[in-house]
């Protein structure tokens, strides 16, 4: 297993904004983040946070209204040879058979196609040779669309809810294949999901979006280590000096998720947060400043500050 080092960051966003209607809301609103090459990044956030839009922008399928988005140091564009995209609606030709779809993948990616991997993901024994894509279930279409994305020898995989309509067996199998592919090639993966617990084992990086902006971005170990869940006698005043992300009463005391800064009190219980706790706490606290590792450089553009 090898991890070929890639000096360019896989995906860098600086003040990305996007809206769909002239007077509509900004789906992405000054979104800034840096995803290094070689990571498996969980893209997480509530519905409407801008996850699918971000993946489409990175795939070059949509254009940003403001801000820049770069993959491997260069502009993103539709058909970028190093970037593959699994869109949420699994775009496939419904009249094609499974075999024809794979042939399409090979033809669209001449010189850049891993036929063996695509076939292994499809697992043709599951399908009859005359099955047309339109006859298949959602989960089966996802499997085939995933095969097309993996078959393209891309260095950046943008996967929009890849496990969403897969049954539990297929999830285990395909996630295993995806992780093995990462192990073999060091490819960067950005995958969105609503189910954080599923992502926790596969992902080593997190990008949390809410209302179109970045709330957290960085290695999961680093982000978790920067926070603590503390339980202590007394109220919030005892937490002065620490950034409190979320706090709640605990009998005569307080339980809070904080950004660690200095030593805890002697009478505090301290433990690291789970990934899910970290995400939920930040979604419940939009006023708390976002956190990124490495810290975001000052934007070249004016970035709208979140209201305090």
């Amino acid at each position: 297993m090898s991890y070929p080092p890639r000096p360019d960051a896989a995906l860098v966003a600086d003040g990305v904004s996007k809206r769909y209607r002239r007077r509509g809301p900004d789906v992405l609103d000054g979104c800034t983040f840096h995803i290094p090459a070689g990571v498996v990044c969980a893209l997480v956030g509530p519905n409407g946070a801008g996850k699918s839009t971000l993946l489409e922008l990175a795939a070059g399928v949509q254009r940003t209204d403001r801000g820049s988005l770069e993959a491997f140091g260069g502009q993103v564009w539709a058909g970028h040879p190093r970037v593959a995209h699994l869109a949420q609606h699994r775009p496939l030709f419904h009249r094609f058979t499974v075999a024809e779809t794979l042939r399409l993948g090979a033809r669209l990616n001449v010189g850049n196609w891993d036929a063996e991997l695509a076939t292994r993901v499809v697992d043709p024994g599951r399908f009859h040779k005359d099955d047309r894509i339109g006859d298949l279930s959602g989960g089966e279409r996802t499997r085939i669309a995933l095969a097309l994305a993996l078959g393209k020898r891309a260095d950046l995989l943008l996967l929009d809810e890849p496990m969403a309509d897969l049954d539990v067996l297929a999830r285990q199998e395909l996630m295993g294949l995806l992780m093995a592919h990462v192990a073999d090639t060091g490819t960067t993966v950005v995958m969105s999901s609503h189910i954080i617990s599923e992502l926790a084992d596969a992902c080593d990086h997190l990008l949390l979006l809410d209302e179109g902006t970045t709330r957290l971005c960085g290695g999961i170990d680093e982000l978790v280590a920067a926070h603590a869940v503390v339980t202590l006698p007394g109220g919030l005043d005892r937490l002065a000096g620490h950034t409190v992300v979320e706090a709640r009463p605990a009998g005569r005391g307080t339980s809070a998720l904080i950004r660690t800064a200095g030593a805890p009190g002697d009478d505090w219980e301290v433990r690291p947060p789970s990934l899910e706790e970290l995400v939920l706490a930040h979604l419940a606290a939009p006023g708390v400043p976002g956190l990124a590792f490495p810290p975001n450089p000052p934007s070249r553009l004016h970035v709208k500050e979140t209201a305090a």
């Binding site: 498996v40 294949l177 992780m179 093995a180 990462v182 073999d184």
Partner: peptide, 18 residues
């Protein structure tokens, strides 16, 4: 088993197995 085989069987991040 190779780390890669464990990765495929468990669907864990390769860094975890390493």
């Amino acid at each position: 088993p190779t780390a890669r085989a464990v990765v495929e069987a468990t669907a864990l991040n390769p860094n975890t197995v390493l």
